[in-house]
Design a binder for these strands. Structure first.
Lengths: 203, 203
DNA sequence: TGCAAAACATACTGAATAGTATGTTTTGCA
DNA sequence: TGCAAAACATACTATTCAGTATGTTTTGCA
């Protein structure tokens, strides 16, 4: 990577940290450049304005990160429901990039910017739909292999699961880690309810 | 109500509308007084600062509204699971105060202010816990009357349900009403999974 | 009805903000 | 190696913001 690209990425990564903690609108450009060794001239050389930086942040930092944490773990799954559970537990309890009190960066941005800025909303919607599609795909394959009940609706379940994730991330901000643990227990129960009652009788 | 109390309430209600749509920090006091016939002097006569106004808004506007929409409907319930479903459907599809693209005012405030301001966080946590307690109470009674399975954990289910609500509210901001309908279908399936398998064999 | 306190109204302040104008330095390559 | 463009750096501006200073009007009641 050349120096210019490094500066750009450095701005994006530091912006990501600040925006994750404080929100997009509450994070000033002055605060961003103060947290780096980059000046305002460099910032506006790399980005036309704050909005464009935010969109670059979504596609170049947030999106790859979410893909690694939310989509990749599902694609190599052999046990579908177990893989979905593990993805969720890892996201909630073990991912070192996430702090409970700050929630999920993607959920935060949806909350703040979704209704306010169409470009942000579109980018974030694509992110969300990619995750839901990955979950749907796992469930469709699981139906074929008889590991979830035949009348399971993958689209419904994907929306239900992703909604649960977004909601518990929100809740964790004010209730702390305990609610994650409780959520995960019921999440496992829910996933079990998708299994066939008598797998041995399947044909 | 005397005139002074009317002015105060008017400020709070208009503030609520603006904050619901734009967020707390993004709603300026100038914008609030511009949307009313109230001056800055009146605003700062009734509230020491913006933070205190926000806390008053939670306890005097948001909290009563949430109680009516989320707690009261559960307390007179005869069919517990049906009452929980109806509460959710009403919140998502029929409540005239909520706009899909703006989500839920309480969820929004948790997202934005929960990690930022301890007083906001505490007030919002009390609100959330009151809702979860109301759901737990319905479920405990339903266990006694045999309308949900005996090994159901009311605390887990309450957290799972409220998380689902918060998450789908977030999702609705960028996916629109369709995801509400899909969510509700799976929500019903989930609630059904809490029922006893063979109610007639209960004793 | 007088008058003190409550309830407002207006004009201002200093700090913070996104963005710009205008420079200087660094880099790649002909 | 010269030099044009890329990559930065600095100083500034117009606006917006929460909050204040200082006024005027309204209200309740002795």
């Amino acid at each position: 990577m050349n120096k210019s690209a490094g500066t750009r990425l450095h701005i994006l990564q530091k912006s990501f940290e600040l925006i994750y903690k404080n929100g997009f609108q509450a994070t000033s450009i002055d605060a961003i450049i103060a947290s780096t060794n980059v000046t305002k001239g460099a910032f506006f050389y790399h980005f036309k304005n704050k909005e464009e930086m935010g969109l670059a942040l979504i596609s170049e930092v947030l999106s790859p990160g979410m893909h690694d944490a939310m989509i990749s773990p599902l694609q190599a799954a052999t046990e579908p429901l177990e893989a979905i559970y593990q993805m969720m537990e890892r996201l909630l309890l073990h991912d070192p990039l996430f702090k409970i009190e700050y929630g999920c960066p993607a959920v935060n941005l949806i909350e703040e910017m979704g209704p306010l800025n169409e470009l942000f909303g579109n980018a974030l919607r694509d992110l969300l739909l990619a995750w839901q599609n990955a979950i749907q795909l796992v469930l469709k394959n699981a139906k074929i292999s008889g590991k979830v009940e035949a009348h399971t609706e993958p689209e419904q379940v994907a929306i239900f699961i992703t909604a649960g994730y977004g909601g518990i991330r929100n809740m964790g901000k004010i209730l702390g880690k305990d609610c994650y643990v409780t959520f995960l227990t019921q999440f496992r129960t829910y996933l079990n309810s998708l299994q066939p009652r008598n797998p041995s009788l399947m044909h």
